[in-house]
Design a protein around this nucleic acid. Structure first.
Length: 620
DNA sequence: AGCACGCCGACT
DNA sequence: GTCGGCGTGCTC
């Protein structure tokens, strides 16, 4: 009798069932008994009779073909690469929708009112036709290859997507377009809808009924273009001609729940499995992707200089005042034409003790607290803890506490001193606005990638803020932030970056938009310190249950040490979890070994654990 | 002692 | 996810 591995959409490994007919059931939805219930699952592969099992139960019913065989291979890769049960992978891949459609449960015609978004304004952009024809050519050939296109800004990426869609419309398969956020997906959807109505939208904030509608359109082959956010990478299209991922460096592509997949990496693997090209784009490609172009894994296309970029000036951040004399002059000359001042924090400043040199930190979460001059209070922006300014330094009881660092409140105070004429408006940045004259103050996070060429100048004060963030990717993120802000500057405008450390090599690269040398510098550093792309990091959080007195965390640590080569850091305790970081230069082997170790870990009594491959942050 | 509740592990 | 087993602890 033939045997089949069946995956059930639970946190559960595949289970083996038998069936009396010997047919190829890979990708079929079936009904199988589980304990005293009957549940639905997917046949993953044909298998041999498991030796150790006495009783094997029978597949009760075949519902129909749910997934393409190649898609099942993709699921298997996901399960292996992200070290998670194949059942939980299944749950992430539109299983419910596909089952509903398969069982022809009547789908109530939802009102289908996708809120119309404003299409992107793309007319003025001239694309590099060579890039476009390269993409169309490879899509026509229908082979796997990954390109990394360095674009001058976000709209160029959107235009590239729209024009590519036009160029490949006669091809057989569908095009999958992945963007970071819901809002981008809605706008791109509207832009494409104008040219081709055979497009569907997929983002996770859509009502389930609308997602179901999109999936039904895809399965029933009425769709040529899919626009969506990260989970759209699982769209059940029969044939793909091309996958494009914009803003590939963005960490929103990482799913926070198990399986903690990265949509860009999944897109590349899906392209490989399905045999179609994958186009990654960004105006600040991730160091990892750039590295992949150096080792020949991806092909690099440099379109960054298709647009002119503003001059960037690096100036020394004064201590007593906020603005460097050159910045100040520029402000006085051009403030009517619109200047944005980007400031790392709200409030007035941080406070530092003159005796011990320590910045006052939140007693709850340990990060620097911001001082509000108007209320004489200190606040922690992460946990919301607030207190009155202490009279003595909490660290050394010193008496000479003074403000350091620049906050929005302090910038506004100084601007009011400079422009005492009262005619100069000082406004908090509102992205909804249409006109950008006057002086605007805001945090760099408020810079939005769709807002281009609106200010005469941008001033970044107290840039050094970035250097204190403990994140191995902070330089590429800081560079990306600078670029985002620079894109908001009109032609002939200027960008000023004020730093206490203008001699830092990092600014040489920024000032000249020298990406190649920046990446080489950054890669050298990552190689020396042992960070990706030269190593793989995996976070493993272990929980000891109440009855786990038999197992100690040391036992688990020793077990992991014996099973997994490379470094084992930790455990650090976080509430009821013990968190380990695994790190190895042999990236493939690490995943291999961890998958094997996890099978044994499952046999430990009284523990539970979570795995995160390529974690978003290393903080516990 | 008897039962209720909640935790834990197994599910082919 | 969900059910059954079992241990803890409360009450009659």
């Amino acid at each position: 009798m033939p045997y089949f591995d069946v995956s059930i959409p639970l946190k559960l490994k595949t289970l083996t069932y038998c069936y009396d007919e010997d047919i190829d059931l890979k990708g079929y939805a079936v009904k199988v008994p589980l304990k005293n219930k009957v549940v639905e699952g997917i046949v993953i592969n044909k298998t041999e009779k498991p030796e150790n099992l006495v009783q094997i139960r029978e597949i009760q019913q075949i519902i129909g073909k749910a997934y393409e065989e190649k898609f099942i291979d993709f699921l298997k890769w996901m399960s292996f690469h992200y070290v998670s049960e194949i059942g939980s992978v299944l749950r992430a891949t539109f299983f419910e929708e596909i089952m509903k459609i398969l069982k022809e449960i009547k789908i109530k015609k939802s009102s289908r009112k996708i809120k119309e978004s404003i299409p992107f304004q793309l007319k003025d952009y001239s694309l590099n036709n060579e890039t476009l024809s390269k993409i169309i050519e490879i899509a026509t050939k229908g082979i796997f290859k990954t390109f990394l296109v360095h674009c001058p800004n976000f709209l160029y990426e959107m235009k590239l997507m729209v024009e590519t869609v036009k160029g490949v419309s006669s091809l057989d398969g569908a095009v999958l377009l992945i963007v970071p956020e819901k809002r981008d997906a809605q706008r791109l959807y509207s832009s494409i809808k104008e040219l081709d109505s055979r497009v569907v939208l997929l983002h996770s904030e859509m009502p389930r009924s609308e997602i179901l509608y999109s999936i039904k359109e895809i399965i029933e082959n009425r769709v040529k273009i899919i626009v969506g956010t990260r989970f759209a990478v699982f769209a059940p299209v029969k044939k793909l001609s091309l996958i494009m991922v914009s803003q590939e460096s963005q960490w929103v592509y990482k799913e926070e729940q198990s399986p903690r997949y990265h949509a860009r990496d999944c897109a590349v693997m899906r392209g490989f499995i399905e045999g179609c090209p994958v186009i990654l784009t960004d105006f600040m490609p991730s160091t990892t992707s750039y590295f992949n172009t150096l080792i020949g894994k991806y092909e690099f296309i440099d379109d960054f200089n298709r647009l002119k970029h503003p001059e960037i000036k690096i100036l020394r951040q004064p201590y007593q005042y906020i603005f460097h004399p050159e910045t100040l002059l520029y402000l006085k000359l051009y403030h009517k034409e619109g200047i944005l001042i980007s400031c790392p924090r709200s409030g007035y400043s941080l406070l530092r003790c003159g005796d011990c040199g320590e910045v006052i930190k939140c007693e709850k979460c340990g990060i620097s607290m911001t001082f509000q001059k108007s209320t004489k209070k200190m606040e922690c922006f992460r946990c919301g803890f607030s207190m009155t300014v202490p009279e003595l330094c909490p660290n050394c009881s010193g008496v000479s506490v003074y403000p350091v660092g620049v906050g929005i409140e302090r910038v506004k105070e100084e601007l009011k001193n400079i422009f005492s004429d009262k005619q100069t408006e000082i406004k908090d940045i509102e992205i909804e606005t249409e006109e950008f004259q006057g002086i605007w103050v805001g945090k760099p996070e408020r810079a939005k990638k769709g807002i281009l060429s609106v200010f005469k100048g941008v001033v970044v004060v107290d840039f050094d803020f970035f250097f204190f963030i403990p994140d191995y990717r902070i330089l590429e993120k800081a560079f990306a932030k600078v670029l985002l802000l620079s894109q908001m500057i009109k032609e002939n405008g200027t960008m000023f970056i004020q730093t206490r450390n203008p001699g830092n090599e990092f600014f040489k690269f920024i000032r000249s938009y020298n990406f190649r040398d920046f990446y080489l510098y950054e890669l050298k550093h990552r190689q020396e310190t042992g960070f990706p792309p030269f190593t793989r990091l995996i976070k493993l959080a272990v929980k000891l249950k109440k009855t786990a007195s038999v197992v100690s965390i040391d036992k688990i640590k020793n077990f992991l040490k014996s099973k997994v080569s490379g470094e084992l850091l930790g455990p650090l305790k976080n509430e009821d979890e013990f968190v380990f970081i695994l790190r190895s230069r042999d990236k493939k082997k690490l995943i291999d070994e961890l998958n094997k170790a996890v099978i044994e870990l499952n046999t430990f009594k009284g523990i539970s654990f979570k795995v995160e491959v390529d974690p978003v942050n290393l903080k516990i």
